[in-house]
Amino acid sequence: MKITKAILLLCVFALTAFTIKTDTEAGYKVGDKIEDFKLKNIDNKMMSLSDFGEVKGYIIIFTCNTCPYSVANEDRIIALDKKYKAAGFPVVAINPNDPNVVPDDSFEKMQVRAKEKGFTFPYLLDEGQKVYPKFGATKTPHVYIVTANDMKVQYIGAIDNSSRNPDAVSEKYAENAVDALLAGKKVEKTDTRAIGCTIKTK
């Protein structure tokens, strides 16, 4: 009898317990127009997308120093910039993590990492964490490809289909998207997923 009562009570408790909603729906979707931002680059200068001047678009990548998936993708991010900067699609890397939570993602450590790896692109700190929520970025690395003329999001997701093992890549999503945009074609896969680290907040 006692047990039945306990079960019944548990049941009632369960029903009244609050449910937790995940909020992955927030932020820009493919087709949305983005707002430009102004963030500090590792060269200590404030930078906006408009500072690139005449380009066709931007490969915006939320990434950081500390996430092993970001680190595993660093060489691929550098390769993307090398391949597409001249074609008019430069890489813009943004560290969305709060350095107070992850000291190794501080501005100074970003400068160190960029130098070590020879980053060829801006590496911005989302100071105050105002920019990444607008995008709806949830993890590092998280890629957004935007066309410059209309500032519209054309692609959201992964760099390729094998984040953990670069030797096993068989589909380069980000490259395919930029290639399509450069050719004036529709991006075939506009939403892809890969494992990543959560963005660190207080």
């Binding site: 949830t138 992964a158 289909n161």
Partner: peptide
């Protein structure tokens, strides 16, 4: 390796972030 496929298959709302 085919993360894009299995992340969406496990749950359409999963962006791939862990935990």
């Amino acid at each position: 390796v085919n993360e894009d496929v299995w992340i969406k298959a496990i749950d359409t709302t999963w962006s791939g972030a862990i935990p």
